[in-house]
């Protein structure tokens, strides 16, 4: 029974984190899949969200600013607000860059944010991180608290999914795709291309920040590893590529698949001797990179390719 219970708890956490990544990948799909903005600074927005909610909701402390003990809902809204503000400022400056250059700029900003999180101890408590972040419904006790949190995550995921589905099929979505396909042509029809690109960038980044915040609550802790480009930026890109860039359903499915692979490869380490455990955690990075190569080369359109919409 214990084993079964263990597996159930594992499954709950798998679905919860998978769902959180689903939210992040939906944000990325809006930016890249729909609008064609090459953002590889996901970790930056993710970390801003993760730390915002941590500072807003964690218990009072001497170690750093905050510990305001505000309700989780305020924390989540705050995360969305701060990651949105950051995206707005960055977007204003960097969105005039295209393709590779935007990629370099976004990853550069994310790297600098990583330095800030590590070094500005007064704000983030530095390498020690911020513990004690509350998780809603914790008073229900195991496993109900986990189930409740999973439901919250899935509900948010579902709402965002529905909203984006509607948006994509609306005239707004058509314009966004037009910008991706041919920016000049879109601009020549009188569309405010810069404004629309900024819109997509900010909204997408808000989802990334929200994802970061939800993960903070799920883990009850946040540290500088939140800004590790590997476990956010890279995983999110692999998820979107595998699921099918441009397709919301693909984005969500890709998130669950890759998170399962990522997390299952960690389980394997339990079977191995201690000496190899460490190596294995690096090997799974290699494995994800390898899967990405195979998808890029054999099925670049992903599992669920983007539907070709008829432009009116």
């Amino acid at each position: 029974m214990d084993i079964l219970y263990g597996w159930m708890m594992y499954g709950l956490s798998l679905l919860t984190v998978g769902g959180i990544y689903g939210i992040i990948v939906l944000g990325l799909n809006l930016q890249w899949g729909i609008t064609g903005l090459f953002n590889i600074g996901i970790a930056g927005f993710f970390a801003v969200g993760a730390y915002s909610t941590a500072i807003l909701t964690s218990p009072a402390t001497e170690n750093h600013v905050g510990g305001f003990e505000l309700p989780v809902a305020i924390g989540l809204l705050g995360s969305m607000f701060f990651s949105g503000i950051m995206a707005f400022i960055i977007g204003k400056i960097c969105l005039r860059l295209r393709g590779d250059y935007l990629a370099i700029a976004t990853i550069g900003l994310a790297e600098i944010l990583r330095l800030i999180l590590k070094n500005e101890v007064w704000l983030t408590s530095g390498p020690r991180g911020i513990p004690g972040i509350p998780r809603p419904f914790e008073e229900l006790g195991q496993p109900w608290a986990e189930i409740a949190f999973l439901l919250i995550v899935l509900t948010i995921l579902f709402i965002i999914y529905l909203a984006l589905q509607r948006a994509i099929h609306s005239p707004w979505g058509r314009v966004m795709r037009a910008i991706r396909e041919n920016e000049k042509a879109a601009a020549s029809t009188g569309k405010d291309v810069d404004g629309l690109r900024l819109e997509a960038f900010v909204i997408g980044s808000i989802f990334m920040g929200l994802g970061g915040a939800l993960l903070s609550h799920s883990m009850k802790f946040v540290g500088p590893s939140a800004s590790d480009p590997l476990v956010t930026t890279f995983l999110a890109w692999v998820m979107l590529t595998i699921g099918g860039s441009g397709n919301n359903k693909g984005a969500v499915i890709g998130a669950f698949i890759i998170w399962t692979v990522w997390s299952a490869s960690e389980l394997l380490s339990g079977v191995l001797s201690f000496k190899w455990m460490n190596q294995l955690s690096y090997f799974r990075v290699f494995l994800i990179g390898f899967i990405l190569q195979i998808i890029l080369q054999k099925k670049p359109e992903g599992i669920i390719p983007e539907k070709v919409y008829q432009h009116k």
Binding site: F38, I40, D100, L230, W237, G289, Q293, L296, P300
Partner: peptide, 12 residues
Amino acid sequence: IVLVISSLGVSL
């Protein structure tokens, strides 16, 4: 873009 993503993967 595909090359950039691929090189990001190679990096890791």
